Amino acid sequence: MASLPAVPPDPAAARLAGTLPPWNPDLDDTLIVRAIREETPDVKTFVLAPEKPCTFAYAPGQFLTLDLDIDGESVNRCYTIASTPTRPHTISITVKRVPGGPVSNFLHDRISVGSILRAVGPMGEFSCFIEGRPSPAPSYLFLSGGSGITPLMSMARTFHDLAEPRDIVFVHAARSPVDIIFRDELELMARNQPGNFRFAPICEADSLREPWHGLRGRLNLGLLNHIAPDFREREVFVCGPAPFMAAVREMLKGAGFDMSRHHEESFDFATLAENAPEVAAEVVSAEALAAVQEAVAPPVTTYTVEFVRQKRSIDCRSDMFVLDAARRAGVRLPSSCSKGLCGTCKSKLVSGTVDMKHGGGIRQREIDAGMALLCCSKPTSNLVVDR
């Protein structure tokens, strides 16, 4: 009797069959784009799943680092996870197109369903969940601007799925009604959780085909008092463009808010990554740091660092990070977090050795292959870097 042909496994059935292993990017960093959703005219969500069925585990608010090949160039970029770990079979990032930004435009224009991306993570400490459990705060105020909504959306989705009885006020600042990311879902969440979840969008202007009749202008203390008069009693989480976060910080300080209950995303992934070379403040910080080091540190060894592709050589002291020395010398290098987390500054060492203390933004096999994160690497010899 002839045997029947083998039936290939059904990935969807495997995901529903029971316990699956956790996703381990050290073993397999391949993610397949399963769906792409247009959130606003310039914002898309990319839903990702591993090639082999497994599950994602992360704290709401953490981020992924994508390892992209763009026209033969290896580029790393961080994107906050917008999905919720309560739905562990896929993971999603929501990306705003940045005019002239090489990575966001690559994702928007050249990535389609079925495309393969590589990623590392999840990583990051910006979360109201600690070791898988919500923090003990009874009430929260989420303040987001533009695409900074993503980590707060992950937190809100998680609370919603868990039916946690937490009092959450979610304020989102957008240019116009058409630019409100996740608007329909947030309004649905508010309907599903009457008394526990309030959504308060603020728009600066009308959309072309939709006049705005809600809260208008930019977030200020008057609007905040109107939306959440009890904001001083809440745990506050903030994410958005750097000027937005700075304005919120000063507003809360001026209102006498206890800043120990203020939490903000420590860096704006997309903006810093797309525009890192132009962030002058970071250069000033590097120079200030170097001045302090020169004033108080004992004499140390100075090494030469050669950047092959830029045809530049700089001096770097053994007590300085290579990235800081490069910025001080005016050498432009991709970077984002400057904490060894995101992987944006990952570079190939053609020769030489470094003392690197990273925060998870590089895998051991990459270190073994001669890669290093320049933001957290101090030279221990002369270096030649493929940058």
Rank of each mutant, 00 (worst) to 15 (best):
A190R: 12
I111K: 03
E164A: 13
P194M: 09
R175W: 04
R198V: 15
F170A: 12
T158I: 05
M189V: 11
E125L: 11
E210T: 02
L188H: 11
G114Q: 12
E210S: 01
S115L: 09
R157Q: 09
H160C: 15
L186M: 15
S112M: 03
I116Y: 05
V120A: 13
A137C: 10
D161K: 08
A156M: 06
D167P: 00
D179M: 01
L162A: 14
S154Q: 03
F170D: 15
L188E: 14
D206F: 01
Q193D: 11
A200S: 15
F170P: 12
R118L: 01
F170Y: 14
N192D: 15
R133F: 13
P177E: 00
S176V: 08
F170G: 14
A200I: 14
F159W: 13
G195L: 10
P134N: 08
E210H: 00
M155Y: 10
P165K: 05
H160D: 13
R118A: 03
S139N: 08
V113F: 01
S147M: 06
G121R: 06
R118Y: 05
L186Y: 07
F159P: 01
H172E: 03
S135I: 10
I130L: 07
A137M: 07
M153N: 08
E204N: 00
V171S: 11
D184C: 06
R166T: 11
A137Y: 10
R166G: 11
P134E: 06
I111Q: 04
H160G: 09
V178P: 06
E164C: 13
P136T: 08
T158C: 07
V169A: 15
P122E: 01
P122T: 05
H172W: 00
G195N: 12
E164V: 10
M123E: 14
A173I: 02
E131Y: 01
I168N: 03
V169S: 14
F142R: 01
G121Q: 04
L117M: 07
D161H: 10
I111L: 06
F199H: 09
G132N: 12
L152P: 08
M155G: 13
H172I: 05
M155S: 14
G195H: 10
P136Q: 09
R110N: 08
S127K: 08
S127R: 09
S207Q: 03
L117H: 07
R118V: 05
P136A: 10
S147V: 15
G124E: 01
P194C: 13
P201M: 00
I181L: 03
C128G: 10
D161W: 04
R183I: 00
H160T: 12
I116K: 13
I111F: 07
S147C: 15
A190H: 07
F159Q: 01
V169I: 14
V171N: 05
R198Y: 04
M189F: 14
S207I: 00
G132L: 11
D161N: 12
R133P: 13
E125W: 02
M123Q: 14
F199I: 05
G124F: 01
C203E: 10
G121D: 03
C128I: 10
D167R: 04
L143F: 07
